[in-house]
């Protein structure tokens, strides 16, 4: 009797946990989330190029002068508006595209799910902040004890965000049982460290870091999406 109850409970436990995991994974199994994150990272690359490199700043100044010539005293407002418009286009546009693709092809037969608002466990979010602050603290401590030069602190600002993002991916991957996020996060986070020891400027580190994340997430998302689309086509054509 006892073993019967135990086995029933254990079976149910597997079912519940399995269903919860599968439902939470649903948002990520088609690779579109990876592609959306890649788009955001690519946006950061452009942002870093514009504001943290000499060539970018020159272009930015040209834009400001053009706006000043065209709109006069309205130029700062137009500049801010343009900036916000680009951010919302990247964020909103990628979300819209993702939903449209899912509605039309990917989720048409398997059903629609609105994911939980907070996919990242609170413990992971808190630790990510600790990682960033810890990294900066470590860089300052090394600088104060004359072990590194001042630019190391600036490079650390970006590298620590790379560690934190990697850790967040690992945390989400472990939480919902997605191995590719665990791999991406671990490899990306560790690889970010290399940038600390290269003779790069603040802007270059940002561009390389976010560019690498965009590339990694883009490749990961594209591979998964390709596989899912092939499967969906097969199902739609009765294969």
């Amino acid at each position: 009797m006892k073993h019967h109850i135990q086995s029933q409970v254990m079976n149910k436990q597997t079912d519940i946990e399995g269903l919860i995991r599968k439902t939470r994974q649903y948002e990520y199994v088609d690779g579109l989330r990876d592609l959306q994150m890649a788009a955001i990272m690519a946006f950061f690359v452009v942002f870093a190029w514009f504001f943290f490199t000499l060539t970018g700043v020159r272009w930015y100044l040209r834009l400001i002068l053009f706006l000043k010539g065209t709109f006069g005293s309205w130029a700062p407002w137009i500049d801010g508006l343009l900036f916000l418009l680009i951010i919302f286009s990247v964020l909103g546009g990628s979300l819209w595209l993702m939903r449209a693709m899912r509605r039309k092809w990917l989720w048409q037969k398997s059903g629609w799910v609105k994911p939980l608002r907070w996919q990242v466990p609170r413990r992971v979010s808190v630790l990510s902040v600790v990682i960033v602050l810890g990294g900066i603290g470590l860089a300052i401590a090394l600088f104060v004890t004359n072990r590194v030069e001042a630019s190391f602190i600036l490079r650390m600002l970006w590298v620590a965000t790379g560690w934190a993002f990697g850790y967040t991916l690992v945390g989400v991957g472990r939480e919902i049982g997605l191995k590719r996020y665990i791999w991406l996060g671990a490899v990306g986070g560790i690889a970010s460290t290399v940038l600390l020891f290269l003779p790069l400027t603040f802007g270059q580190v940002a561009i390389i870091l976010y560019g690498a994340w965009a590339l990694a997430l883009g490749i990961s998302g594209a591979i998964v999406l390709r596989r899912v689309l092939a499967k969906t086509n097969q199902v739609n054509h009765g294969g």
Partner: peptide
Amino acid sequence: LAIMAVLSACESADFTFLLNA
């Protein structure tokens, strides 16, 4: 229990998803 488990893991799900899950 299965329905509750699925719905607990998301904000909302449609009938088709619940059927499949």
